[in-house]
Each structure stands twice: as C-alpha cells, then as structure tokens.
Computed example of a mutant assay.
Amino acid sequence: MRAPLLASILLLSAPALAQAPAPSAPPNAPPSATAAEEGFRILNRTGQEASALHAVRSGRPDWGNNLLPRPLPADAGYRLRPNPQAGCRFDVKLVLADGREAVRRDQDICAGREIALDAGTVVAAGAAARPSPERPTAPGALPRPGARAATGTGFLVAGERVLTNRHVVDGCDRVLVRAPDGRNHAAVPPARTDATLDLALLAVPGLSGPVLSFRQDPPLRRGEGVVAYGFPLTGLLSSDAKLTRGEVNGLAGLRDNQDQIQISAPVQPGNSGGPLLDMQGHVVGVVVSKLNAQAVAGRTGDIAQNINFAVKGERAAAFLRAAGVTPAAARSTGPERSTADVGEIAERATVFIRCEK
C-alpha cells in the first residue's frame, strides 16, 4: 500500500479477541470433475437393511442429512453424484436396521468409484460420532494464551499454499491457519510477499483441500455481482465465516490504483486476504481494505459510505505464478449461481488466519 494512501485506507486485519480451537480430521484431496460427473456407489455388504446413508466431505464436523429416499437392502448399492467442488475424499456412514452403524472414513472417490461397507466396518450406535469441535489439532498449532494477536482471512490456491494480504502476516512471530475442516496448522516462514500489491503466499505443511479457481475470462465489468467471504471482527461476531454480497463499482482503486477494484460488498477488519468471487464462484479479487470514512469526513466534511477495495484477480494470479504456483483458472460463463451456492464454494477453501506477535 503506498504511504500517501494510508491516511484514507483502513486495512482489514483485526485484533483477535477470542478463538475457539477446532476439530481434528483427515485432509481433503483436490477435486476431480470426472469423479463428480460419474459419481460413486455405496455398497451395503453388512448383511442387513440400512435405514440411512450419510456421505460428507472428509473432516466435516457433522454427518449432514440422510441421503436415502428409501431403505437400502442388503447387497444393494446407491449412487451419489457430489458437487464438483467437494473434492475427492469422503466419509461415509450407513445406519443399519438394528441401530448400529457402518463407517468408512477418508475414502478417495477419484481413485475408486465404489465404497463397500461390510460387517468389518460395523460399530455400535453412536461410536461413529464426529470428532468434538473443542478438540485441537496438534500441540504445535495451538493458540498461545495471552499472546498479542491479529486476525485475517486467506484461501487455498494449491496444496499447502494459502494466499492472503501481506499486512495480515507482517511482523508475526507465528502464523496459525485454521482450515475449513476446523484443524489448526502452523505456517512455515518466510512468506513470499509483494509490498505493492499487499499480497502474501504462505506455506502451510499438512494443509490440503479444494482450491479456488481464478476467473480467466470474460473481463470483469462494472455492475457485476460479487461475494466477499471471510472472518470479520473475530471475538465480537460469531467464529464462523461471514458472507456479504455487493457489486463491482469501479475497475481501479483509490487514486486510480490499477492493481485494485472498488466494490460495494461490505467488509470489516478480519476480512483482509479473503476471496472476492463472481457469481460463478471464481476469484476476481483479494479483499484488502476499506475507505476510512472518519479520515475522509475530516477532509471533505462528508461521510463516505461502503467504499471497499480488492486486489484484482489477474494481479493476484500473476503474483502466484511468479512465486512458482500455477493457480487454477476457469471461465465464468453460463447461468449465475445463487449467493448461497457461491458461499459454499468459498467455504471449502477459505481459512482463518491468526497472527501472533
């Protein structure tokens, strides 16, 4: 961020007031479009009828809804076609007629299109509960009690690689990353940074999962709908991610900064480094700052309203390529997705960042 702009820009990292530890769970593998199109079959080899079937992305903290329209007989199968963004690894559970459960975890549906649950997978009712959200990942990735900390947002751009803002991690003694599955990971310094763009690429060993695709074309236009996703005002608001909807207001930032776009999607401290997505769920920017309304009012006598900025997606993608990461790319064509659907795409790859100083 250029020094003359600082008086009028509010960078969106936030002081950490509280953070709940998160569950331990297996990581995801990158998604496979082919696997999603063909789906996979669950085979009931338990010897008795199943009354319910649950299949969720590995590491999800709950089992979700029953997917069976009717009971599944013994030695029968049921085909599922997951969302392409869900990745390759799934946890699967059958609830049997006698109340027991048959469970297989961390199944790679891209490598094998059938998951058989047999007598060897059967456990007592309730024994297959998800890990407690209160259990942390590993001692080395626990927040330090009493540490001075700030928070922000980032998102997966490759295996073990997270993109965020430079100001989110600048001056940190330690950076913790809470993955979409709830596990905590410690980033390994040094981060690859660009001071002009205010971007940083973190190396986070053990972190994997679906990545977000950058919009390749068509060119972004004023008036297009966008969704900002991140973790604003941690410790004041709830600990889950927040979604806001807005539009592209301008194709340049403050004082004609060609590295940024202006957006109306409301953002707050803690949103820094989060993805800005179009209505296809593709990255068009990295949330970076908002106009400091108080500073502007002191200069102009008027209160600026809802003026926010994001680093352009193409600038962020070029930064990644220069850092040795080839970002996923996609064309934004066809019908728009709902805001909720875009939020679900963002959720699978967006991470919470805690900077301890």
Rank of each mutant, 00 (worst) to 15 (best):
L11E: 13
P31L: 03
N66G: 05
L176C: 05
Q19E: 11
R354D: 01
N257C: 06
L254I: 11
A149C: 04
C110H: 09
A310M: 06
G250Y: 12
V168W: 02
T46Q: 00
S289E: 14
P219H: 11
R2C: 01
A252W: 06
A295V: 09
R321W: 07
L202D: 04
N184A: 05
G235Q: 05
A200S: 13
R166W: 09
V92H: 08
Q85R: 13
R221D: 14
P82A: 10
V284G: 07
R81W: 08
L202M: 04
G154S: 11
I263E: 06
S264A: 10
A241G: 04
G274D: 01
G126I: 12
R192I: 14
K290Y: 02
T339H: 12
L320R: 05
G206N: 10
T300L: 15
A14V: 01
A36S: 15
V342N: 00
G334W: 00
N83E: 14
C110K: 03
G334T: 12
R166S: 11
S272P: 11
G246E: 05
Q258F: 02
N44C: 12
D91G: 14
G343P: 10
T164G: 09
L17C: 05
I261R: 01
G146A: 06
I42V: 15
T350H: 00
A86L: 04
I307C: 06
A35M: 07
G225V: 13
T339P: 03
D106N: 15
I263C: 05
I261Q: 10
P190L: 03
G99P: 08
A304T: 11
A179R: 08
T234I: 08
A317N: 03
A18G: 13
P210C: 09
P4F: 12
R166K: 12
I345R: 00
A86P: 11
P26T: 05
G253A: 11
L68I: 12
A186H: 02
V351Y: 00
R222K: 15
P275N: 07
V267M: 04
L10W: 06
S272F: 01
A36C: 13
P145W: 07
A124P: 10
Y229S: 08
R174A: 03
N65P: 01
R354M: 03
A111K: 11
A310C: 02
G206E: 10
V103T: 15
N249V: 10
T350G: 13
P61F: 09
W63G: 14
D341K: 11
F319T: 07
R89D: 08
G87Y: 04
A316K: 00
V103H: 08
G140I: 10
V157E: 02
F352Y: 09
L277T: 03
P23K: 07
R245T: 14
R70H: 13
L94H: 01
R148W: 10
N306W: 03
V123I: 13
V204Q: 08
